[in-house]
Design a protein around this nucleic acid. Structure first.
Lengths: 225, 225
DNA sequence: CGCTGCCTTCGACCAAAGGCGAATTCCCCC
DNA sequence: GGGGGAATTCGCCTTTGGTCGAAGGCAGCG
């Protein structure tokens, strides 16, 4: 039985490097790749028996720790190792508090990445050498509460939440997901309930608290001035 | 003619310290205090001839640089010196790009604060000793574009935007401002136009890009689970 | 097999959001 | 003193958002 690892990163080249670094130690390893949150969700659903998820924090559509929180909620048995270019102690501490089993800075050298992955697969919690938990751990209790609620969302609801956070209208979401607008509204209602808020705007604000970088809304078209 | 300085900080004690540090060098200085964004707007409107605004970044209701951008837009002639506990180079660079004439870390010793204020009043740009502009300057061109648009908002519109960013309904905003809901809607429409977006959620996302800390939406009431 | 949940889907109803035009006030400037 | 422009205010109408109830599909379990 070959072990399965899901590699979620929007950078194709980096995915290759990651696979090479991991596959070198265990040639029989199978990989599933995802370059977006949508693909990540699909991969997680399609591979219920995956052994590990290597997750980049800066993926388009997955503001920060939202994807981590959601995967931890829907697949509690699937270990997640964060792979990120942002390696300051605050970010690492947050990732661990949100349930990641490991944190691998992108600056890590290949051989060390392989060993880190093996460590996480063996059930250890991997942190970069020299890492110390900072004083204020970056994620407040309120943030963890948000994460807990996001973890309760179904995959489809999580997709919709991501689109809400992009500022899309129900109509646009319905078109993208190829369902009726009534269905989208039902999902939105479920999201509002689970997040404990009353409007989509409040839901976006809540989800935004788990973001590391600001979402880019959309390029303002700008015609007049 | 005594010069007027507006001191905007939600911490009363710190306002006192600030006044003491500045007043020591020029006993005749007049002060106007503001402990919230609402009070800040009122003060700026009431004192058109103020000589300087000392502005804290972490004021309730004024997410990050929004207040700075807005004041710079409505009162281009009023110099603004940011006073903040967050003194990393990224933050300082952003403040300067958004049009601040000075940046005074809260850790600055009293005498130095007085000298910094005098320098800004004299037309200089004050930065803490040892400050070097970082490589990536913290604020992207897109962020500056947002700031430029926020600067175009009228005071009332800016107040409404702040409430939108708190996740309030039009009805609640109308109650707080003591106007009809129709009026609030008109303001919201104007805001959407000026920010170049189509919905309130997108407006909140746009304004959120100028935030330094995440807004706390509101404590989720939480009853069921 | 049949039952029980859960997820997804949807249509119909009501509330909130947003657009449009217009009246009022205030301030600046001529 | 008298425009002119901007800001604030508001009512009416359309669109969007959100709730409720319900039906179909799919997995796990007795």
């Amino acid at each position: 039985m070959t072990r399965q690892i899901i590699v979620a990163d929007d950078h194709p080249l980096f995915r290759e490097a990651l696979k090479a670094a991991v596959g070198r130690l265990e040639p029989g390893t199978g990989f599933v790749e995802a370059d977006s949150v949508a693909a990540l969700l699909a991969a997680v659903e399609a591979e219920p028996d995956a052994d590990l998820l290597l997750l980049d924090l800066n993926m388009p559509g997955a503001q920060g720790f939202n994807a981590l929180a959601h995967v931890r909620g829907t697949r509690p048995g699937l270990p997640v190792a964060i792979v990120s270019a942002d390696d300051d102690p605050q970010t690492i501490a947050s990732a661990l508090r949100y349930g990641a089993q490991g944190f691998i800075p992108k600056s890590t050298e290949a051989g060390q990445i392989g060993r880190a992955v093996e460590a996480v697969l063996a059930g250890e919690i991997y942190t970069p050498p020299g890492y110390h938990p900072p004083r204020g751990s970056g994620a407040t209790d309120e943030d963890l509460e948000i994460a807990r609620r996001i973890a309760e969302l179904t995959p489809q609801q999580f997709r919709v939440l991501g689109m809400l956070c992009s500022g899309l209208l129900n109509k646009q979401i319905a078109y993208d997901l190829d369902v009726s607008e009534a269905t989208v509204k039902a999902h939105v209602t479920a999201i509002l309930r689970k997040l404990g808020v009353a409007t989509r705007t409040q839901a976006v604000l809540a989800a935004g608290r788990l973001a590391t970088d600001r979402a880019s809304v959309k390029p303002p078209p700008e015609d007049s001035d």
